[in-house]
Simulated assay, not measured.
Amino acid sequence: MTQQPIGATPKKEGTALKVRKKPRRTIFLQMRKNYSSYLFLMPKLLLFILFVAIPVVWAFVLSFQEYKVFGSEFVGIDNYIKVFESEAFRIALKNTLLFTVVTVPFSVISALVIASMIFVLGKLSQSFFRSAFYLPTVTSMVIIAMVWRWMYNYEFGLFNYVLGWFGIEPLNWLGQSSSALWALIIMQCLIPFGVGIIMYLASMGSISESLYEAARIDGASTFKQWLYITVPLLKPTTLYLVLLSTIGSFQVFTQIIMMTGGGPGSATETLVHLIYKTGFRDFEFGFAAAQSVVLFVIILIFSIIQFRVLRHDE
């Protein structure tokens, strides 16, 4: 019999064996234990599978086919070759990139500045401005686009009326290639980014006041407190808003179809509007599916780059 060292706690025989034989919880057992929760999730999960997951998979499969109502034909990567050889796709990509590069930084930065100005106000004033800036978010973009189309009207639009005060000739904002896309960009920039303002206000409320007190003791000005404390600690929110607004700008559609239809010429053609025309006007569903897959890859690449640049380690 093996002797144990003096002072050592005696071991119970078979303890280690019993621990090794203890069954581990599997995913199936956990799901079985919490089956009632999954029953509540089941309707939403079924809707997601039917209207999101299956269409996405089918679009990817369709991108390798020349779709026909009776019997589609497998064409391999021919649709993708057509996408990269298409002049219309390159123009739409250029317009979409310009729209994104200008509107996303402006929207996020303006939301941060407006939220910072609102945060220092009293609770009643904060509630008022929250509602005021969030209101356009719940308004249909169709209605907003119709209002802005009237404002850009050549004969009786608000902008040309204001230009007339300064003796400037009226501009055909949406009717000429040089100004049509910039008119849409200006419209997007001047629509308040309500979601961003609300999220920034909520994030600012979670920053510890002790950080600002320490900065004030060290003699930091209000601007330096905002620049070196508020802005860095809002990086997670900034990352989310940049990703959200980038995806939204790459998918811009309502403004295009309501205000310009992609014209004049191809001056305001964007990727989603081009995909719509390819599929539902030209009935080239395989080609449209390939364009949508390429758009998905482009958005994914931009999202990865933004996540690496703006990721938060504090």
Rank of each mutant, 00 (worst) to 15 (best):
R130W: 15
F253C: 06
L227Q: 13
V83N: 12
A288I: 07
V147C: 06
T26H: 12
A215M: 07
M31A: 07
V108R: 07
P55R: 11
T230Y: 03
G286E: 04
I301T: 12
L29I: 02
K11A: 12
A183C: 12
S107C: 13
V242E: 08
V113K: 14
S86F: 02
M204H: 14
E85V: 06
E284C: 09
L171P: 12
L295Q: 05
L47S: 09
M199I: 10
F133I: 10
S177Y: 10
G219E: 00
T2F: 13
Y152D: 03
I144H: 00
T9N: 12
Y228Q: 09
I207R: 06
T26K: 10
L124Q: 15
L295H: 08
F283R: 10
F193K: 06
G262M: 02
I191W: 03
G261N: 03
M259C: 04
I198H: 07
A132E: 05
Y67R: 11
V75L: 10
F119L: 09
V231P: 08
W58R: 14
L234V: 11
G194F: 10
W173G: 01
F28W: 12
F133D: 04
I109S: 11
Q3P: 03
L174A: 07
H273T: 01
I217R: 08
A92T: 04
K224P: 05
T268S: 05
H273D: 01
A290R: 05
V83D: 01
S131F: 15
M117G: 08
S131E: 08
A202V: 11
L29T: 09
E169I: 09
K224S: 11
L271T: 02
S266C: 02
N153Q: 03
Y38L: 01
S221T: 11
M258D: 00
K235C: 09
S303P: 02
K123Y: 02
N79Q: 06
M258R: 04
K277D: 02
K44T: 06
G14P: 15
I298Q: 01
L244D: 04
G76K: 05
K123T: 04
S177R: 13
F223R: 08
V252K: 08
W165R: 04
G205V: 13
F106A: 03
K22F: 09
N34S: 07
R308C: 05
V108S: 00
V162L: 15
I197G: 02
L171I: 15
T222Y: 11
S107E: 06
I207M: 10
L171R: 15
L41A: 11
K235H: 04
L211R: 10
A288F: 09
L211H: 09
V83Y: 07
F287T: 05
L135I: 14
P232H: 07
L124T: 10
W226H: 14
G194K: 05
K82C: 00
I304S: 04
G157K: 00
F129C: 12
I299L: 02
A111C: 12
T103L: 07
S177M: 11
I257D: 00
F156Q: 11
